[in-house]
Design a protein around this nucleic acid. Sequence first.
DNA 1: GCCGTTTTCGGCCCGACTGTTTTCAGTCG
Length: 574
Amino acid sequence: MDKKEIVSMLEEISSLLDLKGEDKFKISAYSRAARSISQSTDDVVSLIREGEAKKIPGVGEALSKKLTEFVETGRLTFLEELRSSLPEGLPQLFNIHGLGPNKVRTLYEQLDVKSIAELEYACKENRLVTLKGFGQKTQDKVLDEIARFKENSEYRLLDVIHETAASIASLLDKLSGVERYEFTGSYRRRREVIHDIDCVIKFKSGERDKLFAALGKLKGVKEVRETQNDLVSLVWENGIPVEFIIVNKAEYPLAVLHSSGSKEFFAHLKEYASTRGYTLGMRELKRGRDKINFDSEEEIFGQIGLQYIPPELREDGDAVVAAAKGNIPELVTEEDIRGIFHVHTNWSDGAEPLDRMVAAASKLGLSYFGLSDHSKSAFYANGLDEKRLKEQGRLVDEMNKGLKDFFVFKGSEVDILADGKLDYSDAVLKTLDFSVGSVHSKLSMKKDEATKRLTAALKNPYMTFLGHMTGRLLLGRSGYELDMDEIIKTAARNRKIIEINANPHRLDIDWRFIKRAKEAGVRFSINPDAHSKEGLADYRYGVSIARKGWLTKEDLLNTMSLEEVKKFLKNAKS
DNA sequence: GCCGTTTTCGGCCCGACTGTTTTCAGTCG
């Protein structure tokens, strides 16, 4: 039993109660408890076992009993009864953007819709338009969203894949018959969303067949899809497809190269190789009839006359063109990051007090961070009014005096209001070291208005970073539309820093956009948008996105030393 | 279902947006 199971149990109850139309405050009590437990730094399971569940904020008498039952027996009668009172597929419908509890209930009660498949059928038969509260537009939108859901539901965020890959790695490390292995595919390229995990394995001579059999029996395998030639195709217990490609020593480097790049990239590579008189295949490289041997990917690139191309860049032909000219830059690495911005504490909606965040960041080897709790308009996040902001500033000053190898910059994640103004006056913003301008209320879907709002904010000298901007481009939520070129132009002209939001659940920024902005001369910062100690380390995901955007150390603010950053931020305000 | 230096009962984060209405309900962040 772990924390995650408890959290998902509570979340499930919450959404089932929602479907039943229960009291909304009761519903939110469950989701509040789930959030509280997932953010808790205590050993929640032990706490519950010891009968101390009520010490968890948001857990009272009733929940305490349920949690105890769940932890002790692994089951919860209440949840089981709740489940059996509703059709199994119904909660699925929540995945369709725009459908909430009331609409789903209407669909079930009036049309007997119990699953996404049935919903799609009902739309196609034009049955939604007859329902009260529904109309043509809603039906069209539901159909669109179903299509989007189908397209995206098979993709997972990078951090989820990362976790699964790590557990696979620990199993492979112990498996005899494995000489070497490398995760390849879009995971190695560090895409933000990933469909499956690919892994190339070099087998120990003579142990090929044994290895084939062993892979299908790994702990964590849910299903063996197929085994043929050099491929073992599995489904992992969490539903993620995993493909192992098993090759010999001679094939290994090219198999890794082939499996790591996108199809488009490999086609460009192949074409380039042929102009140099080589035939590049999936498993062998030939010059005329002669097979060429090599021990590493580096040697293959060298052989066909290309500079080494880091995996993150192996998306399209651009990297091949650049490598031919020797123009692949030295990309930023995790070690280059000296500090981070966009950090929350429990003054607004973070989980930890400031001192614990400082200690955790320091432990990660960082030498500064920028504190940015929410501004006053973000009531839902307990945003700071001017008075509390000032008070927090005093706390930071006091703390900085006592710190030897760490520095906290005073800042705010300041809301960009509907008219493009910021949530604090210039006089207040002036007292801060920096600010991250963010839009929280929904941006109007109208492209012109949304762009106008952001460009107005970009012109404010007291907004340092443009945060949260391209919004939910991924995983099925259509973001707001913006005129990106206009944003880039204005950001460059006003010397703004664009934040690379490294929170793996947000991933607000697309590397294609980063590349365009870089070319326009915009500078970036990797900001983790950390709400907990664990969240601080998310800057690592930001590094991989930065690399995909071809960023070097020079393109980032937070590769600067503390003294340089201080100077930079001071100049930025003047 | 939780919680209390206003309260053991009566509140609970709130505003924007969309599409459906003919003055508002539902959903989202």
